[in-house]
Design a protein around this nucleic acid. Sequence first.
DNA 1: AATTTTTTGTTATAATATAACATTATGTAA
DNA 2: TTACATAATGTTATATTATAACAAAAAATT
Lengths: 132, 132
Amino acid sequence: MQKQEHLTKNQQIVLDLVEKSSEPLKAYSILFNVQKKGLKAPLQVYRALDKLVEIGKIHKVESRNAFVACKNSSCQVSKATAFSICESCEKVTEINNSKLSKYLNNFQDNSGMKYSKYNLEFFGLCKKCKNK
Amino acid sequence: MQKQEHLTKNQQIVLDLVEKSSEPLKAYSILFNVQKKGLKAPLQVYRALDKLVEIGKIHKVESRNAFVACKNSSCQVSKATAFSICESCEKVTEINNSKLSKYLNNFQDNSGMKYSKYNLEFFGLCKKCKNK
DNA sequence: AATTTTTTGTTATAATATAACATTATGTAA
DNA sequence: TTACATAATGTTATATTATAACAAAAAATT
């Protein structure tokens, strides 16, 4: 079987929802929102999420246990992700900075480990919240 | 009330356990291990963990929902953390690289956000697992 | 000593995620 | 085009992670 080149029904339903959302979505919030479309059990959502993360269509924001659609169309796999997170309003934005990604993709320390993947989360106050 | 300068009994018990561990510990594994010392409920553990994270004695490895002691004695708060994680044996090491931390502490993008904190997790295969 | 803040203890429950197994669909190859 | 292998689905149950709410005790501040 060759690599799946199209999304299955469940994957597409979940992706559509996450892409339409202006904020990170939690798994059970996704579940609630897709129940009318026939996905009734958590596992159906988690399996779709797993696959979508694997192929890079969405990313998991680890510190929030939430999922966002990848805005970077060239992103084929979730192997180099960076986010900015506002600790006040919880707005999350994917950082797309080629200098940063180059720096991190090339990072090596003296551990002998070759890193194939990273996830970076920055925290602070967004412009709006800073001025309150 | 001024800033707490010593740990409470529960905090010390949890910290001792995490510091002795050679691997990241999960909250309920901590709970199990400190029950003989009188911490019977999850909340007692989570509260100690929260405080210990806040003061930088331990860090949370977000992608693993696990906790490690901070090896960096100068670390007063958990505001700039980086880890290397082996995806095979799950060994986690805190990265202590001044060039990296300087780079990330000074990182700015065009979002107008000032970042006060970050967490970075690198994934790959450790030396041992690479040679298997 | 009175006040405030922090920590504790406790029970219950919420939120997040996976195990296990039977079934159906899809791609691969004889 | 039928067998075979792989992947996705549906389903029930359960494991894992984390917090709410409230009363009480301990510690620092005035």
